[in-house]
Simulated assay, not measured.
Amino acid sequence: MKTSVRVPVGASVAALLLAAGAVGCSGGTEESPEMTPAAAVAKAAKNTEEIDTIRYRLTGRAPEEGRVKAEAQMQLKPELAMSMKMTALDQGAGASAEIRLVDKAMYIGGGAEAAKEMDGKSWMKFDLSALGAEGEELDQLGSASQADKNPAAESTFLTGAEDVEKVGTETVDGVKTTHYKGTVTVADLEKSLADEDKATREKRQKSLEQYEKMGVDKLTMDLWIDGDDHTKQFRMRGDADKGPLDMTFTFLGFNEPVKVSAPPAKDTMDLAEMMKESQQG
């Protein structure tokens, strides 16, 4: 067996996609006329606490990777589980991958292209508990901590903007929404952590660390909120050290059953086992 392998195409986007996200979607009409933009955004942020599962579609541009698209489903409670199919559109043929997180292990599948590099196996397993956060292989994914972040944390950042304003009403995927926008700096978000409860502070801190690593110091935020005060669509933009960040999440459902299974063992290369064999050798 080869002791040196290349992580399947698109894996460097995995941490970014796991780091990003927002809340669920629903139908309805726009918010009450007396609600201010700041109040509407705050109410949608509060509603993230009621979300156990989400399904969403992602399109946009990631630093280094260029244009990406993905569809995902994620369970936030009682234990984190997720599956995502993604494609790096500017990376040529075969630049697709599937990511699964289940039972505290991350699996990255690259199909036939990955199998060429991994003795016929199309999946690589990263056992987060076995490898630990200090492993070099985990650094390629951003860090192990990115896998256990609640994606709803990203959408609540707009509550920290001082310039939140209402853009207008728009229909997104057949749902009437009200569009809001604003800007926030990572430094201001860091300062605001002291005013949050412990759970919210921990969620936001993980996200902010990711942006700091990318070199993003300011985010332009857009939120499309439906008549039930849930975010239907979410967009974030910023300038990173290695290129622009511009991600739009459209939410397809929430609090629906989510089932994620580990890939067949016969098709999976276990990175922890491979490292152990390498050390023994």
Results as ranks from 00 to 15, higher is better:
S155E: 07
S155Q: 11
V258P: 01
S155M: 12
L193N: 13
G227P: 06
F249E: 10
A199K: 14
R57V: 13
L101K: 02
G253L: 07
A161R: 08
E64I: 13
A105T: 11
E65A: 15
M86I: 01
D228H: 13
K116P: 00
Q210V: 05
S26W: 02
R67Y: 03
P264F: 01
G253W: 08
A72V: 09
A97W: 08
E34M: 01
I51D: 08
Y56G: 05
D267L: 06
A38N: 03
A22D: 12
T156L: 09
S261V: 07
K125C: 02
R55H: 09
G132C: 01
A272C: 10
A161L: 02
L17A: 07
T183S: 15
G110D: 01
P33V: 03
K206N: 04
A97C: 15
Q280E: 13
G281Q: 15
V186L: 14
G66L: 10
D195A: 14
D239C: 04
G27L: 01
R237M: 07
L89D: 08
E136F: 06
N255L: 04
K203D: 13
K206V: 11
P37I: 05
M74W: 06
E117D: 11
T178Y: 03
S26V: 01
K213T: 11
R6Q: 11
M221S: 04
Q279D: 06
A262K: 15
L208S: 03
D52E: 14
M84I: 15
P244M: 05
S261E: 15
L223G: 02
G160Y: 06
K85V: 12
E117K: 05
K232W: 01
T29V: 00
A240W: 10
M86R: 12
A22N: 11
V175L: 09
A88L: 14
S26H: 06
D222A: 07
E50Q: 14
K218Y: 01
Q233F: 08
T3S: 09
G168K: 08
V5Y: 12
A40G: 01
R57E: 14
R204V: 00
R235V: 04
L131I: 05
G21S: 04
E117C: 00
E34G: 01
F249K: 07
K46T: 14
S143F: 01
G92N: 13
D119S: 08
P37V: 04
G238L: 09
P264T: 04
S96T: 15
E190C: 02
K191F: 00
D270L: 04
A199T: 12
D195N: 12
R201E: 09
R204L: 02
D197P: 06
L193F: 06
E165L: 07
G10C: 05
E277L: 15
V186N: 04
L18S: 07
Q146E: 07
V41D: 03
A19T: 13
V23L: 06
A153D: 04
A262L: 10
V184D: 08
Q210G: 00
P244T: 13
E34N: 06
Q146Y: 12
R6H: 05
L223K: 15
K104A: 12
K46D: 13
N150G: 13
G66H: 10
T171F: 03
L138W: 02
T59G: 08
G120S: 01
G66R: 09
E137T: 05
D197N: 15
S261M: 07
L76F: 12
D127F: 00
A81M: 10
V164N: 10
T156P: 05
A19Y: 00
L208D: 02
T231R: 11
L223W: 13
A72L: 10
P257G: 10
D217G: 07
